[in-house]
Design a protein around this nucleic acid. Structure first.
Length: 729
DNA sequence: AATCCGTCTATTTTT
DNA sequence: TAGACGGATT
């Protein structure tokens, strides 16, 4: 069996491309990962390159891991020596090796976004900056945006008072990080980039080493990442970029689709290979996706096709309210399960996390097991962050962030006054907080010395111990376990802390088996390596797999996944496309790409649903169906509810009604709020012809608002507010 | 040091 | 509506 068996002509062309730069436009479900890994295997097998000459970069650890597994499955070689990992993981590896050239301490610590925010808050406080005028989050965004443009504070341009001050804060933040020996996520990239730019010897070394650089999800790269790639790629390096501009959905975090076009131009790419055969979805689903995305103007161009049949039409459901929508979905899921489908092969997708609530409620009351993706991950939990802070102090006492986090946690009578004195002393002597402790006299000095003694004792007691035992020891001696055991709802936290010991154990095990997270053996006993691992790979953001459960997630997190049946919910103007995106430059097109991603997740069955009314932020909103529904050709869809322009579904004759959910949500929706005009739901009104009635529901806003009114004997009517002469009764 | 209360805010997310 | 956060209270 050859590597190249069963590849289609385009895949084959991509895999066996001679040594040159290449851009692969890989549509959804077109076998992108397979091409990437087979290309690597092929390059090695044909002797084009040795594993050490390969660099493959991804965005997520999951993708990197998957790539390594698949390469190993295809080739009986050791993947050791190959650089496969995330941008951040690879930069970390580089900086650990060349810490001197990078001007970093050997055991530099990595800050995650939370830590970074805390560090920025400290800077703001030390500079006496008004946090109302300069919200820490905004400053964080500013700094990261600058770094992702490759700019230091000195090079960051200023256009107003706000940005001027932000640049000053940026400069102070840089200085603080340097002093404390910490590095944030974007710093990993920028620092590596700078070292490579300025150090010719190193640059040439790596340029000579890496003969082939492969990039996954190229449409998601930001400007700095692209420049980083350009720097690593020497005259003899072939760049192989795989991406899909139609699936570019991360502009909001700096992704620059333009990199694809730039790459084509910068490297005079002769071969743009399109992978357009889709192996995932049935015909109607693909046609819907193609038709929808054709509404975007800025595209490189691509049309998916499948050898599979047309399959079923897309099913569209219009619900009276979000509650009804959820109840209907729950019933439909149950009937799919009754038909023998696994719950894990069914997904409910939504645009924003807030939508999961109603859905969860309906699923819960029908007793359908489900898993919601997103939320806190293991290494981001408070108790874990505390534990890691103790470990960080063991590894590097200069880490003021870690120091402040746990100096008084669990509480040991070290108040704000003591900390303030300590900070002053540290500032005067130019030392870290930890090193400044012996400088303090009096009560503050005593209590603080008590803390450093704990750390010192811990350090000597754990010297030479295996990592899991170090962690176990730390949990005891720090008092963390005791603290959470004493706390009312601390049981889960204690469990998580114990899980940290297991995490350390399995980290070591993985390290000893020769496969570090980046594919190279690591010193499994190295506390510093474990800490970096914890930050860079903060773990699954979902608890135990366990039973067969329905999958719930945002459309963003569904990217790259596929399911037998998919529900795309909340397809309403304002929600999907989101109202905030519509104002953004290119926002609508990105929303459409998001919808494209959502549609292409489905293999055989796709449901689209929307609700006339939705409770959002404690207010009832009256919604119109999403324009994306209109963009799907009629011939591909089947309306489960009567398609009535602007009319409520329940106005249709009973015969046309779909099966009503048997279990309705407990409270459909009750609202007294009004959408802009003077009338509200439940209000009694008088009409010249129909007499007295009560407002049942409404839709639209302002001048084109329409009200549904129950006139009792005269029946239910929809009236346009602008024409019906209504008076409050 | 812990608890309470008012205020604010509310797309999308990986590293 | 609900959650997170900061400041004030006990």
């Amino acid at each position: 069996m050859s590597l190249l068996d069963n590849l289609n002509p385009e895949q084959l062309a991509a895999v066996t491309l001679p040594n040159q730069h290449a851009l692969i436009l890989a549509g959804a479900g077109s076998g992108k990962t397979r091409v990437l890994t087979t290309r690597i295997a092929w390059l090695i097998q044909t002797g084009n390159v040795s594993p050490g000459g390969l660099l493959a970069v991804t965005f997520t650890n999951k993708a990197a891991k998957e790539m390594l597994t698949r390469i190993s499955a295809q080739l009986p070689i050791n993947t050791r020596g190959m650089w496969v990992g995330t941008f951040h993981g690879l930069c970390n590896r580089f900086l650990r090796t060349h810490y001197k050239e990078a001007g970093l301490p050997q055991l530099f610590q990595i800050l995650d976004s939370q830590d970074q925010l805390a560090a920025i808050k400290r800077v703001l406080r030390s500079m006496n900056v008004d946090e109302d005028k300069f919200p820490p989050r905004q400053v964080q965004y500013f700094i990261n945006a600058a770094k992702e443009e490759g700019k230091r504070a000195a090079q960051t341009e200023v256009y107003d008072d706000f940005s001027r001050r932000c640049v000053e804060i940026y400069a102070a933040y840089e200085e603080q990080c340097q002093k404390e020996g910490v590095v944030d996520f974007s710093e990993l990239l920028l620092r590596t980039f700078e070292v490579l730019s300025r150090n010719e010897i190193l640059r040439e070394h790596y340029q000579n080493r890496f003969r082939h650089i492969l990039v996954d999800e190229f449409q998601d790269t930001n400007r700095l990442q692209y420049r980083w790639l350009k720097l690593l790629a020497g005259p003899q390096t072939c760049l192989f970029a795989v991406g899909d501009d139609d699936q570019s959905i991360y502009r909001f975090r700096g992704a620059n689709v333009g990199n694809m076009g730039d790459f084509e131009r910068d490297y005079k790419v002769e071969n743009v290979i399109r992978l357009e055969q889709n192996y995932r979805s049935h015909g109607h689903i693909l046609s819907a996706a193609n038709a929808l995305i054709a509404n975007n103007a800025k595209r490189l161009g691509k049309n998916l096709w499948t050898a599979a049949g047309e399959g079923e039409p897309l099913r569209i459901y219009e619900a009276q309210s979000d509650g009804y929508e959820a109840a209907w979905i729950a019933e439909e899921v149950q009937s799919l399960v009754n038909d023998g489908h696994m719950r894990r092969d069914i997904a409910i997708l939504y645009r924003s996390n807030a939508q999961s609530r109603v859905l969860e409620h309906a699923l819960f009351s029908q007793g359908i097991p489900y898993r919601v993706y997103g939320g806190l991950r293991f290494f981001e939990r408070m108790e874990i962050k505390h534990a890691l802070a103790y470990l960080r102090l063991l590894a590097s006492p200069e880490d003021d962030g870690a120091f402040l986090r746990v100096v008084n946690f669990p509480t040991r009578g070290i108040g704000a006054r003591s900390i303030e004195q300590l900070q002053d002393a540290a500032k005067v002597h130019g030392t870290s907080l930890y090193a400044a402790v012996p400088l303090l006299a009096g009560k503050a000095g005593t209590v603080l010395a008590g803390f450093t003694r704990i750390i010192e004792t811990l350090k000597s007691e754990t010297a030479g111990l295996p990592l899991p035992e170090v962690v176990e020891h730390m949990l005891e001696k720090s008092g963390l376990i005791a603290h959470y055991k004493a706390e009312r709802d601390g049981a889960d936290r204690v469990e998580n802390l114990n899980e940290l010991v297991n995490a350390a154990a399995s980290f070591m095990q993985e390290a000893q088996s020769g496969q570090g997270p980046e594919g190279e053996p690591v010193d499994g006993n190295d506390l510093g390596t474990f800490l970096a691992h914890a930050v860079l790979e903060s773990g699954e953001n979902q608890a135990a797999e366990g039973q067969d459960a329905l999958q719930m997630m945002t459309v963003h997190s569904a990217k790259g996944l596929e399911f037998h049946a998919v529900f795309i919910t909340g397809l309403e103007e304002g929600l999907f496309p989101h109202e905030q995106s519509v104002n953004e430059d290119d926002g609508l097109e990105e929303e459409r790409r998001l919808m494209y991603v959502a549609i292409t997740r489905a293999r055989t069955r796709l449901y689209l649903s929307f609700a006339q009314t939705r409770l959002l932020h404690g207010q009832t909103r009256y919604n119109v169906a999403s324009r994306f529904i209109d963009e799907i050709p009629e011939g591909l869809v089947k309306w489960l509810t009567p398609k009535l322009r602007g009319q409520a579904a329940w106005m249709a004759p009973a015969s046309e009604w779909p099966a009503t959910p048997t279990k309705l949500p407990p409270k459909p929706y009750v609202s007294q709020s009004s959408p802009g005009h003077g009338f509200h739901i439940g209000q009694n009104v008088l009409h010249a012809k129909f007499g007295q009635g009560v407002i049942v529901s409404s839709e639209g806003q302002g001048a084109d608002a329409r009200l549904q009114i129950n006139f009792g004997r005269q029946g239910m009517k929809w009236l346009a507010l602008a024409y019906a002469k209504l008076t409050p009764a």
